Each structure stands twice: as C-alpha cells, then as structure tokens.
Simulated assay, not measured.
Amino acid sequence: MRLTGILLAAGKSTRLGRDKLTVAMPDGRALAAWSLQAALDSELEQVICVVKPEDSLEWLPENVLQATVNSSNYRNETKVQIAVSTEYSSGMAASLQCGLKEAKEYGAEGVMILLADQPLIRAQDINQVSAALVLNKQSDYAAAVDGEGRKPPVAFRSHMFDHLLALVGDEGARKIMRNDAFSGTQVNLPDFCFWDADTEAELKRIMDYVNESAQMK
C-alpha cells in the first residue's frame, strides 16, 4: 500500500506563546525537524508538510528546504511536499484537508496523519502503524494508542478520504476514530511518542527526556 504522510505543522502555538516548530532541540535541529525526519526515515512513500502561509520554513532541514522550493512536484530527492493551508485559523480540519487534497492529487492509496509537535515519534513507530493497516485488510484505519485512547499517528485507507474531507472546525481524525461505524486497528506505542510541546512544562519534559536518553548511550 502506498501511504503518504500528512505532517500537520500549521498550528498557532497559542498555549506555548512562541513558535514551537522552531524551538531548538539539544542537537541543534528544530523541534519539528525531528518529527519530519522520523517520517522521512520511515516506509512512507511521500510526506506532505501542511504549513501556515506566514511560515518561514526555517525549521526545515536545509536540504529539504532547497529541494521543496526548487521542485513543483513530488519527485524530489527528499520525498517532501509543502502544502500551504490558507484556512488553518478555522481549525485542524482545514489543515488536514489541505494535505489530503494534495495526497489525492498524488494518487495515494492511504494517508497517515502525523503531528509536527511530537518530536519523539520514531520511524519504527510510524512503520508499526503502517504495517497494522496493511495486515488488517478489513480495517478502515490503524491508530496508535496509549492509556488515553487512539491518537496520531493514524493511517486511513483511501475509501475514508471523503469522511476526512467532511470534518469541520477543530474536528480532527479522533471524531472518526470514535465512530463505531468504522473499524480500526490499535497499535500500542510508548507514552513518550505522544508527548507534544503545547506548554513550557511539556516542552521541558521532552528536552529532559532527550538529554537523559543521550547520557545513557
């Protein structure tokens, strides 16, 4: 199955009070670059980064930035496409649909929704979700799960695209995952995979984890 990743990077960073995407991680890379790199290292065929019109894109690795700026299609060496969500302020649904329309144009057989502010997600985690969807052929989607329920990364088959396009406002994929009319497969992932950088306290937890992990190596 040809899965295209949709990396949602058009949030407002309201709770953090500053642009979370460009926050420098301990290795010097931007926080969102960690999420993107995991997607690029995974088995996803393409990755669509959904951004705001005013995004400077400075969080992108230099090679990715140059390749996407100089390419008008998906066939560049980084397998990244930038999609600008002009309606991002209306809610998450608009950004998701912006990326989905690009994926449909490309001819994706399915999409995986990823969040740019979850830097601890790994390529192996993304691959687990992808494999679960491929293996469970009767499932409409495959979603990561922790103690709080199903969450991104979540992969949907192409017949679910119209349902995703029908979402409005701040409705995300969770609305579909909570609908018993659809069949989903769950993939258990470590808690840290879901940590996001919505607040300074949450950002500190991420940084502390990265530093502690580096010391243990």
Rank of each mutant, 00 (worst) to 15 (best):
T78A: 03
G107S: 06
V69F: 07
A116S: 13
D196K: 10
L31I: 07
Y74E: 07
L100C: 01
K52G: 01
A33S: 15
G110F: 07
M216I: 15
Y74K: 05
E62I: 09
L8T: 13
A116F: 07
G91N: 08
S183F: 10
K12T: 14
R75G: 13
L167P: 09
D140S: 07
R174I: 14
M207L: 14
V64P: 03
I6G: 01
M92P: 04
D180I: 12
V50A: 04
Q128G: 11
A201C: 00
L167A: 01
V23E: 05
A67M: 01
I113R: 09
S13Y: 11
F156K: 08
E105C: 02
T185S: 13
F182H: 00
S71H: 13
A143L: 01
I206L: 02
E148H: 00
D180E: 15
K217C: 05
D140L: 08
Q186Y: 02
W34N: 01
W195D: 11
K151D: 06
S183E: 13
N136W: 09
L60E: 03
A83W: 07
Q46V: 13
P61A: 06
I126C: 00
W195C: 03
K151T: 10
K20T: 14
I126E: 01
P153R: 06
T199Y: 10
R157C: 12
Q81Y: 03
H159R: 10
S42I: 09
G28V: 12
L100Q: 01
I126N: 00
D198P: 00
N127G: 02
K151S: 03
R18V: 15
S72P: 14
D208G: 00
D162Y: 04
F182S: 01
S71V: 09
V50D: 01
Y141W: 03
F156C: 11
D140T: 12
V69M: 13
A108Q: 04
T86W: 06
S139Y: 10
L65C: 05
A173F: 11
E202R: 15
L115K: 12
S95K: 08
A67D: 05
A30C: 08
D117Q: 02
E62P: 07
L57V: 06
A103D: 02
T68N: 05
I206W: 03
A30P: 08
G172P: 04
V23D: 00
N179A: 05
G11F: 07
Q97D: 03
L40C: 01
T185R: 15
D27Y: 00
N76E: 06
L7T: 14
L3C: 09
A173P: 14
P119D: 03
M177D: 02
T78Q: 10
E102R: 10
K101I: 01
N179D: 15
M216D: 13
A214T: 08
R150M: 13
I121A: 10
D191T: 15
G110K: 05
P26Y: 11
L120P: 03
M207C: 08
K217N: 09
A30V: 05
E148K: 04
L189E: 01
L135K: 11
I6K: 00
N73C: 11
K137S: 15
P53Y: 08
Q138H: 11
P190V: 08
A144T: 09
L165D: 00
V168L: 09
A123R: 11
